[in-house]
Design a protein around this nucleic acid. Sequence first.
DNA 1: CTTGACTCCCAAAACGTTTTGGAGAATCCT
DNA 2: AGGATTCTCCAAAACGTTTTGGGAGTCAAG
Lengths: 336, 336
Amino acid sequence: MANLKQLAQSLGLSITTVSRALDGYADVSAATRERVREAADKVGYRPNASARRLRRQRAELVAVTLPSDPGHIGPPHFLDMLSGCAEHLAAAGLNLVIAPVPRGESELDICRRFVDGRRVDAMLLVRTKRKDERVEFLQSRGIPFVTNGRTESLLPHPYIDGDGFAGFRAATLRFHAVGHRRIGHVAGPQEYYFAHDRCRGWRAAMEECGLATDLCAEGAPLEQGGYLAALELLRQPSRPTALVCSTDEMAIGALRALREVDGGNQISIVGHDDLPMGAFTSPPLSTMRMTGENLGASFASLLLRAIAGEPAEELQELHAIEFVDRDSHRRPLRAA
Amino acid sequence: MANLKQLAQSLGLSITTVSRALDGYADVSAATRERVREAADKVGYRPNASARRLRRQRAELVAVTLPSDPGHIGPPHFLDMLSGCAEHLAAAGLNLVIAPVPRGESELDICRRFVDGRRVDAMLLVRTKRKDERVEFLQSRGIPFVTNGRTESLLPHPYIDGDGFAGFRAATLRFHAVGHRRIGHVAGPQEYYFAHDRCRGWRAAMEECGLATDLCAEGAPLEQGGYLAALELLRQPSRPTALVCSTDEMAIGALRALREVDGGNQISIVGHDDLPMGAFTSPPLSTMRMTGENLGASFASLLLRAIAGEPAEELQELHAIEFVDRDSHRRPLRAA
DNA sequence: CTTGACTCCCAAAACGTTTTGGAGAATCCT
DNA sequence: AGGATTCTCCAAAACGTTTTGGGAGTCAAG
């Protein structure tokens, strides 16, 4: 309730001593320490956060930018992730502020405001691009940050990401193993690292199998984008018998496209993200997801270690992808 | 990048003048004002947030507590709401921090930490209880806050809420109008205002129709709670022909219960919240939802007005409830 | 008695802003 | 010319903490 000065006065001690007593320094006697603690408890004293932050030169804050652009705000797990992250950060005295990007401003503007105004000690970035100006900016400023997703930045930086390459390669190979030969890819915007990575995985598998890699169509990472991209593939003279989709949202759009063409229900499909909604589509959507639980805690841990100064190379987590098999990936394959 | 002192020195001006120039005061000449602004732009000067906050005695922060308890974290709209709120707050120079409640701590502890440590200028509370200790605490401290949901607090406080009473009364009357006489209520925990309010609406309708109000079972505001409560009602000697459920999650649990009893698919059901998942249940779940769009902006506006000192009475929004008719509310009614 | 080590405490500086209360110069009015 | 007013600017205080660099005492050893 009160401030240090009043508390010190009421105890007949100096501000210094009270401050150090509360922080548990050894150079104040056990007796006074106890006396101070009791008095502080009684009046409910809490140090003024702004003053401490100014003096300590720490903002005690971490910001996460929420892209409002296309693709919405990640899967529904996202809030759980943030919540978990915030909880673990709080245990270290840091709070998490959410920073949506208002229209007319770029995410870079947001970063600038937070970083140059010394409003945060670190940042959390989601939805990285291959060449990500936010990453470059933060690196140039030397402020700690962790990204959800890799980039093609030359300097290493901390990240957590799923191994989309391996996941999409495996999914494609699996289709090949059960007889599919024309396997299409519904790709997300290639400027995003995840979309490019997943596309590369599909392409690698196709080449390993000696198959052409022309059955690829790109769209916005949304239902509508998947719908349009799938339609484009289905209009090809020799259309695909299976579709590997960059995200579940796109896969759900692709399912809609399948319903609109003859024999569309013969076409197998798989997505990525494990959206809860996938369990309710018809057919139920087979998908993939990043392994590992309590992602929020991992992000928090990386952030804290980055703030503590650990080198970026040791703060990179690449998680395996696992299949979530429902029904959409095993449509009967008609003889070609 | 630099601080005010350095900027002032490089311009041959005093700190005062530079500060005032940047803030656009009239007592600095247009010429110097421009000169200062240009220099500030060039070096990318931004005032140190902690220093400003200390001096201004404002935290420039608003916190929202995220209940981790039962009932998860509200509907998926929740993140959108927070994002919208944060965006509008940011326009006024305030940032939104999310404060999940770690296990072992109460929401009250969180409030105390934020308020007494002067970490926030205001708070946003969700999931109010009828008698809500957080509300009482914040009122005793005189710190501005807005709740999502009413309380039974004697002192008025700012809130945004849906008119659950009217909504559930209307839903019940609608069942009555099409011939239902045994209309059950799957209730949420009555300590929550929303659950109590909705229960009262159902009860009022039943009494208006001269029907008994014993077909009511309470459960946790989750699928499992709805499942158990519905089973309890279905075991009654004269079981209900329609169910009014406090939340969609509970309604989805109730649907599961219906599938497990003879003739369960004859029983009509309606929920509340308009969860996206409701469109995919079988049958598709009829539900209700609060009217009004861009809820986040409304919360932000109320918060800002509360901070500005407007009286609580003028900061209360009660929104009407609208039906979202899908299929589950119009099961054929067998002659009793 | 002096010296050094140790214990417990404190005054003052510093963090970087905003704001108060003028000061000096120029301009205006009579 | 003399006083009042206006226009620019500034020194210093204040916000509430943490931290630096000792300053008194006390005690044991020399």
